[in-house]
Design a binder for these strands. Sequence first.
DNA 1: TTGTCTGCAAACACTTTGCACTTTT
DNA 2: AAAAGTGCAAAGTGTTTGCAGACAA
Lengths: 168, 168
Amino acid sequence: MAVGSDFSLGSVDTALTPAERFAEFLQTRGKRITRQRRVIVDYVASRHEHFDAEQLLADLRKTREGATASRPTVYRTLAEMVDAGLLNKMVLDGRAVYEHDYGYPQHDHLYCTGCRKLIEFSSDEVAKIRDAVAARHQFRAQSHRLLVSGLCADCRSSKSRTRHQDRI
Amino acid sequence: MAVGSDFSLGSVDTALTPAERFAEFLQTRGKRITRQRRVIVDYVASRHEHFDAEQLLADLRKTREGATASRPTVYRTLAEMVDAGLLNKMVLDGRAVYEHDYGYPQHDHLYCTGCRKLIEFSSDEVAKIRDAVAARHQFRAQSHRLLVSGLCADCRSSKSRTRHQDRI
DNA sequence: TTGTCTGCAAACACTTTGCACTTTT
DNA sequence: AAAAGTGCAAAGTGTTTGCAGACAA
């Protein structure tokens, strides 16, 4: 479908900034655009790494003072952003980790059990396998997640330094 | 390598029953074979479905009375069985779910977000993708997990009845 | 003004831990 | 007898909720 465009970055479907898309989402739900929700979307949009709720909370407090939000609000807003399709949530070692999911291509992760780093990769073969398997089981696949656990290059050299967690 | 065998079921490496393997594991660790540990391995070995700690606890209490174990002991023993390579642990919707990992072939899962059922499938292509990707990132892959979320055949018919959880 | 949102404190679900007592070795 | 294991109750995590006051529409 032809999409008029005179903006630089961004691929198909990414006509709005995350903040705009969130505002749109909130409006269609009769929800309000508050200072806290704005602070949170802006902050998240400016980051490009994976993060968890506590990190976000701490970072907000470190940055411009006053521009904070309470813990419950952070959790509530993150959940809304997942609903809005802006964020992706995944659970590692018992805590939820978020990443962008708007205008980002589908991908999977390598997870280093040494330093807990997440490395993204994509392979359309995974999607093919997913669909083939789903079809075979009369299953309607909505999403998938492939997590490969192991040790990253850095941690392979400096082994046995950090305590190793459960694999997944 | 050639393995002498005059036992029926079981593939490569499965010379011992789970209980025997666990006993072996405990001995090499200077740990003791107690009534509770025995009850738990036996129970787990007799089941073939996925289960979580609370289920196991409840089931133990329902079955032959007296043959129980406390919650802390159940958690402790499950962790040991994971260590021993008898069980595999995975976290879904915030709780740990276990499955056999001894003499069982590597496989992945379809997860129904409607009824929380897990359906196993296996595809060696996943392992190939894993190894290729790991190599490309100088990563040492130790394990992987592919989880395809969606709706199973049953839940597709009776839609919108059950509340839908987070995808993964 | 009206109804939503926020922050606080308290509640939560699941899991782990300190410790006195029990049990295996 | 010595060392490890158990169960209880209590403490942890990470996350969610009830509610009174604050605020966007």
